[in-house]
Each structure stands twice: as structure tokens, then as C-alpha cells.
Amino acid sequence: MSNAFGAKFDKVCEILDRYEKRPTNLIPILQEIQEEYSYLPEDVMTYVATAIGTSPGSVFGVATFYSHFTLTPKGKHVIRVCDGTACHVRKSAEIIKTLEAELNLNAEKKTSSDLMFTLETVACLGACGLAPVVVADDEVHGAMTKEKTIELIKSIREGEVAHA
């Protein structure tokens, strides 16, 4: 994800050109745009609809149909908690609850107000031997507990402070 001046929208134009502004390429177009923006902003979807000659309603329909697409901005750090069978029996629910309390989130609100964290649950990460598993950004943390989860968030926050 680039923050340089105008880079994101340049990329949108490039993506549309590369896919020849064809309506049948809508899904890959949206996928690549989401990679740029981390989500699908409404105004960009309207631009895509204009460019490929369809109605914004049908772009919105596709964007809301697939769970891969998200219409709200994601936080800087994405925390994924595995809630597959193995993790679930090893109390992943408790970890989710802890994270929700710590980050002031709930079932509807997945991203913290400061846009720092997004909490996601996933069905299985295929690392059942490490259950319960939490993936913070791209780092895997196994055999998680309530305490270790709080510690993890604390260290990410401290890292942010050190950077700033």
C-alpha cells in the first residue's frame, strides 16, 4: 500500500486500463483496488461503475456478495483469531472476547476508532497443533492465552509509540 502523492488513484486508472474497462472483469478489478486501498471506498466504486459502463448498484451488489471484499477501512494492524474446531475447543472464544474488550470492539464493529486494529475471525488456519492461534499482521502466535493476548496488543502499541 503506497502513500505517495496520488499513487492510489493512479493505480486505479492503471487497473481499469489493464482490464480494458470490461464489465466481465469487475471482480479482479475490485480485488486489485482493494489491495491498494485496503477496502472499497464508495466513490471509487462509483468511478469503476462509470468506467465499465454499469450501474453503481450492480458494483455494490458484487462488492457486498463476496466476503473477501470490505466496504469499511481496515486498521493498520489486522489481528486474525482462529475459531476453527481445534481452536474453538481450546477456548478461542475467550481470546476474541479479550480482544474485543481491549480494543473496544464488538460483533458489528470490527475496526478500532483510531484505525489501528481490525479484528477478524477465521475458520481454520491449518495450525491446529498450536491451538488456539492468533495471527497478528503476518506473525503467527500459538497456544494463546488471555494474558498473552493482552501482552501482544501491548507490544504492538509500544512499537507504534517507538516509531512515532
Binding site: M45, T46, S55, G57, V59, F60, G61, T64, F65
Partner: peptide, 17 residues
């Protein structure tokens, strides 16, 4: 094309963009 399907499964609905 003012109305279209959005969301899916039990949450599916028809409405504007």
C-alpha cells in the same frame, strides 16, 4: 439499474447502491 441485489444468504436484500 437503480435497484440491485446486495449482500448474501440470510442477509441478502434488494436496494439502491
Amino acid at each position: 439499474g437503480a435497484l440491485d441485489f446486495a449482500y448474501r444468504g440470510a442477509k441478502a436484500q434488494v436496494g439502491p447502491c
